[in-house]
Structures are given as structure tokens and as C-alpha cells.
């Protein structure tokens, strides 16, 4: 089972929820930190990093000896990563989305692939809990290819938890797509609700069952609860605005370590998710 933890608004508590859920469930889970632009789950889970691997994405290289400057490569590229000017072909590899289209359409077979460094993958573990994160190269603009590489290393025999990046754009879709459940973490503020709505719409498009964690639940207004009811979004856990939680966080400690009674609450959160996922799978089978 794959569960992605997303939010819309940043800073609502995705990493708090994903790291605590991870530690509460123990070695039957693995945690993938897919917030590759600023991964931080390792600061709280504190895994021992055992291996670091550099990853690349293919981009075109043009052999000007073979090129006839027909511009077919330029025409097929949606992202304008190739420009044929006079007797030159400029490759803007930072715009390339690695589709391979230019290679396919080149009648002279003048295009081959070289690598553009995306960043690194770190593999580690904490008390038998598998941990992977991606760290994007400084200067790289596109995170989805790296997020996909983090996910490609998931172990299908484990429960996979994915700490998603904030927002609702391509990186978030890359982290949520093809998961069994999206756990949305929000806070009961107008900004939290505004971005939660965007995230909920994105999850609907992907057709994935979802549920809510309301963090700092005793702040703000009750609009988020009304919205959840309207949308039939189950609230699976509420985390209060508690000084002890804030203090633990500020020291890089997990709630389940500092306040052991929370372990059970996070296990309960998982059990509710499991029930929803099983129910929706049963429904899918019944419908097909």
C-alpha cells in the first residue's frame, strides 16, 4: 500500500505527520521524502544514510556532422529545448523534459542522449525502517523526474509513506499519482483551507481516496470542518496546538517519542486509512 501525505499549503505539518506515522508503524513501513526541493524528514526520523546515488535524466546531444538542419527536432519539442539557427543547433537542456521525441523524429539519427544531473538519492534506515529521500541539484528547475526516481526505488513489500512537496503543481502530482490514499494535512486557517480546496480538487482528478489530518486544530475557524463535511472528507486525526508538540518539533524530536500516548493515535490513523483503502478496492472490484 502506498500513502502520500500532501497539503496544498506549506507548513501545515506534512512532515510531522509522515515522520510520526512512520515511527509509530515501525519496520513494516518505509518513508520516501519526495519534497526534493527541500527534504526535511531526515531531520526528525534521523535515519543512518547508507548509500548516496547520483541520478540523471536523458537530454539530447546533436551530432552536427550528420545534422541537415531540417528543424524536425525543433518542431516536435513542446518546451522549445532545441533551436536550429543557421548551421547551429542550440540545446537548452534545462528545458528538456526527456520525452525522447527529438531522437525519434530525426531522419539522420543525429541525436543521441546524454545525462543532465538531477540530484542525488539518499538511502538509509532507522531501526529497520527503510528511508529514501531525493535532493535536487542546486540550479535544477524540474523536480518531477527526481521524484519519480525516488518512487521507483519503493519496496512493494512495505507500506510506503510518501512525504509530498507543498502546492498542487507537477511535483505534487508526481508524488500523489498512483498511490492508494492521499492523506491531506491542513490547519483551520483561511489560507490553509484555501489551499486545501485546491489540493482536494487535484486529488479528485486523480481519483484517489483521501482523508484529512487537522493540525493545530484548536486555532482559527471551523470553516475547514464544514468544508470537510460538505466534501465527505473524513477527518482521521486532529493534532492540537500544544506547546509540548511545538517544543519537541523545535528540538527535532518526534511527538511519538516525546509523548508515547501519541503512538496509538498514529497507529489508529493508519488503521482508518487501511479500512478506507480496502473498502475502495472492494468497491472497484464490485464495479468491474
Amino acid at each position: 500500500m502506498i500513502i502520500s501525505i500532501a497539503s496544498g499549503k506549506g507548513g501545515t505539518g506534512k512532515t510531522t505527520v509522515s515522520t510520526n506515522l512512520t515511527l509509530a508503524l515501525g519496520d513494516r513501513v518505509e518513508l520516501l521524502d519526495c519534497d526534493v526541493e527541500e527534504p526535511n524528514a531526515h531531520l526528525f526520523l534521523k535515519p543512518e544514510i547508507e548509500q548516496t546515488r547520483r541520478v540523471e535524466t536523458p537530454v539530447p546531444k546533436v551530432d552536427l556532422e550528420k545534422c541537415t538542419f531540417c528543424k524536425k527536432c525543433q518542431e516536435i519539442c513542446r518546451f522549445n529545448a532545441l533551436a536550429v539557427v543557421g548551421k547551429q543547433v542550440l540545446v537548452f537542456s534545462e528545458l528538456c523534459h526527456s520525452c525522447g521525441g527529438c531522437m525519434l523524429v530525426c531522419p539522420e539519427k543525429a541525436i543521441s542522449e546524454v545525462g543532465r544531473e538531477l540530484g542525488v538519492l539518499n538511502f538509509g534506515n532507522r531501526d529497520g525502517i527503510r528511508f529514501i529521500n531525493g535532493l535536487m541539484r542546486v540550479g535544477e528547475a524540474m523536480s518531477p523526474p527526481l521524484i519519480k526516481q525516488v518512487r521507483a526505488n519503493a519496496n512493494p513489500d512495505k507500506i510506503t509513506l510518501i512525504d509530498a512537496p507543498p502546492g498542487t503543481s507537477c511535483p505534487v502530482i508526481a508524488a500523489m499519482n498512483d498511490t492508494d490514499f492521499v492523506l491531506l494535512v491542513t490547519e483551520p486557517t483561511p489560507f490553509g483551507l484555501h489551499d486545501l480546496k485546491l489540493a482536494v480538487e487535484a486529488v479528485k482528478l486523480l481519483g484517489i481516496p483521501a482523508g484529512l489530518v487537522v493540525n493545530r486544530a484548536d486555532l482559527g475557524t471551523d470553516d475547514v470542518y464544514r468544508y470537510a463535511e460538505q466534501e465527505n472528507l473524513p477527518i482521521l486525526l486532529s493534532i492540537p496546538f500544544d506547546r509540548r508538540i511545538a517544543e519537541a518539533y523545535s528540538r527535532g524530536k518526534l511527538i511519538v517519542e516525546e509523548m508515547p500516548e501519541w503512538r496509538e493515535k498514529f497507529v489508529g490513523l493508519f488503521e482508518q486509512i487501511e479500512t478506507i483503502v480496502n473498502r475502495s478496492k472492494a468497491q472497484l472490484c464490485a464495479n468491474s
Binding site: 513542446r78 529545448a81 533551436a83 543557421g86 542550440l90
Partner: peptide, 30 residues
Amino acid sequence: NAFKGAGIQAATTVCEKGAEVLMTGYCGPK
């Protein structure tokens, strides 16, 4: 409304039209 690389595309157009000089407000690196 180009997704990306509007400047690159416009630049190839200018080159194809045989202009020797481009006059504009702002021109980006690509």
C-alpha cells in the same frame, strides 16, 4: 501562451526572417 521557451522560439523566427538587429525592451539569456 507558450509553455516554455517563448524567447527561443521568437528568436528563431527573427533569424529566419533575415533581420540583422532585434529591437525590444527586455531580452532573456536563452
